[in-house]
């Protein structure tokens, strides 16, 4: 009989493979905090930190949905447009005399339906998610423009704008919503059967199917989650600006994807980190804030963020190569 041994080697491997991206992010974040607080006395004040959290909350909400999609081996390019469409639908409903709560619910359902459309087409017709969500993105943006006639809708009841500008103690609703969803997403992804299947879908869809699990169902739910997350993002944007803008959330899908990848979730699927996604969102938020504080022109923001994302992806790739070499020894 062979001995049942627990080697230390695996522990080292797990440490390098799982926590490394997050550790690196936190390290970069610390360096940034130190640099920025040295260069600007304003950076490390509660008001400014609150600002960063407030701005990051929108990105966090969308990126959490994207974390599930990318972990399952897919991608969702429609989230920015779905956020705009949902916001517009909420606004149109309120304009039509519906109360705030029901309008919000309606907007969330619209987001969920768009997600269901994405998921159903991708799963049943086996079409590349990139193309499908690109189509739904254009479709949603088009619908948002048609509903508004291209003109932003503004002026909402207090019940609605509270979701963007309200106060709960020192915090505001978007922050708390983002915090709540973060905890929820972490629990669901890592501890629930749905989370297990999301990761298994990204790892080996066929294996999951042969184990007797309905992969269509779970795939569609993943995209519905992303759609609802986008709609919640639409709620935050619309309530914050007190305006439903058909072109809101422009390029938000790119920011979400960037944050997810930066956070260590594998584009190949099968590995997802909620903590990483949230850390990356905060890092990007801090970076934008820092560049503004240091009065660096906004054009440079795009450049710097692009460089950071590229660096993160390259580091991840090099590291995985190294890992394999280490294991093969």
């Amino acid at each position: 009989m062979q001995k049942y041994v627990q080697t230390d080697l695996t522990k080292i491997k797990l440490l390098t493979s799982h926590i490394f991206p997050q550790l690196l992010l936190i390290l970069v974040m610390l360096i940034m905090v130190i640099l920025l607080s040295v260069t600007s006395p304003f950076f490390l004040t509660w008001d400014n930190l609150r600002n960063i959290f407030d701005h990051s909350s929108l990105y966090i909400i969308l990126a959490l949905g994207m974390t599930f999609v990318i972990s399952s081996g897919g991608i969702d390019l429609s989230v920015g447009a779905v956020a705009a469409l949902s916001g517009v639908c909420m606004a149109a409903a309120m304009q039509g005399g519906l109360e705030a709560g029901l309008s919000i619910l309606g907007g969330l359902i619209v987001g969920g339906l768009m997600g269901a459309a994405n998921g159903s087409i991708i799963s049943f017709l086996k079409i590349n998610p990139f193309i499908v969500t690109l189509g739904v993105m254009s479709l949603s943006r088009g619908l948002a423009l048609i509903i508004t006639g291209g003109i932003p809708i503004y002026g909402f009841p207090r019940d609605f704008t509270w979701w963007g500008n309200g106060h709960i103690g020192p915090f505001n609703p978007p922050m708390l919503l983002a915090a709540f969803l973060t905890v929820l997403a972490a629990v669901v992804l890592n501890m629930s059967r749905f989370g297990y299947y999301t990761l298994a879908l990204g790892g080996n869809e066929e294996a999951l199917r042969r184990s007797g699990v309905s992969i269509h169902l779970y795939k569609i739910i993943v995209y519905i989650l992303s759609g609802v997350a986008a709609a919640l993002g639409g709620l935050v944007v619309t309530a914050r600006l007190n305006t439903a803008e058909p072109l809101a959330g422009w390029m938000l899908e790119m920011d979400s994807i960037a944050a997810v990848v930066l956070g260590g979730t594998s584009m190949k699927g099968g590995k997802g980190s909620v903590a990483g996604t949230v850390t990356a969102c905060l890092l990007l938020g801090m970076l934008r804030n820092g560049l503004v504080i240091l009065s660096i022109p906004s054009y440079y923001q795009q450049l710097v963020i692009g460089i950071i994302i590229l660096a993160a992806v390259i580091i991840a790739e090099v590291r995985s190569g190294k890992n394999l070499a280490f294991i093969n020894k």
Partner: peptide, 14 residues
């Protein structure tokens, strides 16, 4: 038909 990136126990109970 194993999910490579998941651990042994998750695969056995897939």
């Amino acid at each position: 038909a194993l999910v490579d990136c998941r651990d042994v126990a998750s695969n056995i109970f897939l």
